[in-house]
């Protein structure tokens, strides 16, 4: 079992590109093997599982990363010169419960946002958990293709500005919509060796891309913002922090702004641009979404227990907030521990 302090044994820096050229880095640095042009496997002692990479139409590639790692590896995706975005769908459990051995006491919930769009021009680092199945469904979308879908909704000038690679990087974070989640969940259970897998993957990819385009065009240009890479990175750090604090009280915007190393007004502004909500609204929303999952989990004996678990001193206050957001009292969703 790995602990948080353990240093990754291996480090790899790799390219990402719209063609399959990026895999060379994995072959050369980690000894990965390419099977039937689309699948890539890592050496058995490193990881089980595979990745799957395929073009579904010009400007749209799909990449599935489905591994259970046996050893800790740090992956660094280098900044890419190509003009494209990477859309990440994380299908790992929305919430992981960390249990302290022996006591069975839950010490923390880490909630993840399901979908993110990141400009390929950004460098990023990721260390997957050891011994857990990591399942990430990714779309690589050329900016030219995205632009095509937004020409209908935005003025031509706005489109030009938004997708100008020299000036902007693109971000969008959200929860996965139900139809997308169901499609991905079904795909996750389908064997890569099934003869109908490839056709199904095409079906899933077009569907997921369709939902994404719909979702982005509903929110319109709001989601695509002009923020510098450094600022966005700092604010994203505070967002991850918030997601790990869902059992506690809101730490306050002053604290968060300091963490991000910027003024409160600048911080609040960027946060809102990235996540649509103010930091506090965002935090409460996430808390309530977590509450909803806990209420249906059947792990608790009463609603008050859940309220306390989520850091509310007064269960009545929790119920009111919950009602405000979901238009019904927690009791409607509550499943008692058997």
């Amino acid at each position: 079992m790995g602990s948080a302090e353990e240093q990754p044994v291996l480090k790899i820096a790799h390219q990402m590109s719209m063609d399959s050229g990026w895999r060379t880095d994995f072959v050369n640095q980690l000894g990965a093997r390419i099977l039937n042009s689309r699948q890539m496997r890592l050496p058995d002692d490193m990881a089980d599982g595979c990745s799957y990479f395929m073009e579904v139409m010009p400007g749209l590639m799909v990449l599935i990363v489905d591994f259970t790692f046996h050893t800790s590896i740090e992956f660094t995706k280098l900044a890419s010169q190509d003009e494209f975005c990477i859309v990440y769908f994380d299908l790992s459990d929305k919430i992981s419960l960390h249990q302290v051995n022996g006591t069975g006491h839950q010490v923390g919930y880490k909630s993840k946002l399901g979908v993110g769009i990141v400009d390929a021009a950004l460098k990023s680092t990721y260390i997957p958990a050891v011994g857990e199945r990591m399942y990430s469904f990714r779309l690589l979308v050329s900016k030219a293709l995205l632009k095509k879908y937004f020409l209908g909704n935005m003025s031509a000038l706005m489109v030009e500005r938004t997708f100008d690679g020299r000036k902007n990087t693109i971000f969008f974070y959200s929860h996965i919509k139900s139809p997308t989640w169901l499609a991905l969940n079904q795909l996750k259970d389908t064997s890569y060796d099934s003869p109908s897998f490839e056709l199904m993957l095409r079906g899933v990819t077009f569907k997921v891309f369709g939902h994404l385009i719909e979702q982005m065009s509903e929110t319109g240009p709001v989601i695509v913002r002009q923020i510098t890479e450094v600022d966005a990175g700092q604010v994203l750090k505070t967002q991850s922090y918030l997601m790990e604090q869902l059992q506690d009280n809101f730490p306050g915007v002053d604290f968060l702004a300091e963490m991000a190393g910027m003024s409160v007004s600048k911080y609040s502004d960027i946060f809102k641009k990235l996540f649509k909500y103010s930091p506090k609204q965002f935090f409460l929303r996430e808390k309530m979404l977590l509450a909803q999952v806990l209420l249906g989990s059947g792990d608790f004996g009463s609603i008050s227990e859940i309220a306390y678990e989520l850091g509310f001193g007064k269960p009545g206050y929790f119920s009111r907030l919950y009602k405000n957001m979901f238009d019904e009292f927690p009791s409607a969703a509550f499943k008692i521990r058997e």
Partner: peptide, 17 residues
């Protein structure tokens, strides 16, 4: 709708699969 052709394409592949 904006994504209609994408959904139709998706449906065709699902049906073939």
């Amino acid at each position: 709708g904006v994504a209609y052709d994408l959904f139709l394409t998706s449906t065709v592949y699902y049906l073939l699969s």
